[in-house]
């Protein structure tokens, strides 16, 4: 028997909306659960005290410092590489096998799972180059992880800048590089910032890479050769070894809230850029 098309449409829509509702429910459940149990843990002492007794007591200051240190290093290393790649791909070459190969490499790199990156960082930076478990090893490996994100978003941002901008520059006698640095890049800056912010968000939550490259020392890292435990790694250890549920929840809440806030701002920036040039 053939179902009445209108009836089947109603049924299909009901199923689709139910599934969507369920997905939203999961998301809201995660955010509410972590916030309700975690946010009350966040006090000035929690943020600015050093962890005591393996993290059972005290705050998480050293892990915040390590996270900031490693993330900053990764961003400083990956941004010039990523933005440079994007400029080259959009401004200096025609589409061809060369650009396809570079893009394919970047897409494959984006697909490499973090545990493989962790293995790689461990063998190259920690062992072979002798950096040990350190901020430097962690930052270098993270930089490779976020490179594809920066390339992709910068490319999109630079492509969004209208052709006419460049033509006007040339007609005024500017060279290509002058046009890029004085006009194209400043116009694309919000998009490039988006990419960098998304990379920060990704770095904050990363665990597998850093467990094997930056180590898990609870001391506040000072030199780039010091080991440092990031917030995500700290949270993982607290949760897995059952050291302190309140501290685990507190760390998770800080992580989640900062990542969500960063992603939200990045998203709004990108939307604004797209709207301005389309």
């Amino acid at each position: 028997m053939r179902l009445d098309p209108r009836l089947s449409q109603i049924m299909a829509k009901t199923v689709l909306w139910t599934f969507t509702g369920f997905t939203l429910f999961i998301l809201i459940f995660i955010i509410v659960n972590i916030s309700v149990k975690g946010l009350p843990q966040i006090t000035p002492t929690f943020l600015f005290d050093l962890p005591h007794d393996m993290g059972r007591a005290g705050g998480i200051f050293s892990t915040i410092a390590a996270t900031a240190y490693i993330t900053l290093l990764a961003i400083l290393l990956a941004s010039p590489l990523g933005v440079g790649t994007a400029i080259y791909l959009t401004e200096y070459t025609r589409e061809g096998w060369g650009t396809r190969l570079i893009r394919f490499g970047s897409e494959c790199l984006a697909g490499v799972p973090s545990i493989i990156l962790g293995l790689f960082g461990f063998v190259l930076f920690v062992m072979k180059l002798g950096f040990g478990w350190s901020v430097l090893s962690g930052g270098l490996t993270l930089a490779i992880m976020i490179l594809p994100i920066i390339i992709r978003t910068s490319e999109e941002a630079i492509k969004a800048v209208p052709r006419e901008y460049r033509q006007v520059c040339y007609s005024l006698g500017l060279s290509q590089w002058q046009a890029i640095t004085r006009v194209v890049l400043p116009s694309a800056l919000p998009g490039i910032t988006t990419g960098i912010m998304l990379s920060v968000g990704r770095s904050l939550g990363e665990t597998a890479v850093l467990l094997f490259t930056a180590g898990a020392s609870l001391r506040t890292p000072v030199s780039v050769f010091d080991s440092g435990r990031t917030m995500a790694v700290h949270f993982y250890i607290l949760a897995r070894e059952g050291l302190s549920m309140p501290n685990a929840y507190g760390t998770a809440a800080i992580l989640m809230v900062s990542i969500l806030a960063i992603n939200l701002v990045a998203y709004t920036l990108m939307q604004r850029l797209i709207k301005r040039y389309s």
Partner: peptide, 29 residues
């Protein structure tokens, strides 16, 4: 296909937030 454009403007970024939640948090919950 089915949601009004206004709702899509809100729902899409909201669902994309799922991607930002760190994997250790998923494991923990």
């Amino acid at each position: 296909e089915f949601s009004p454009p206004r709702l899509k403007m809100v729902l899409k970024p909201t669902l994309e937030l799922l991607a930002g939640i760190p994997s250790v948090v998923y494991g923990f919950l």
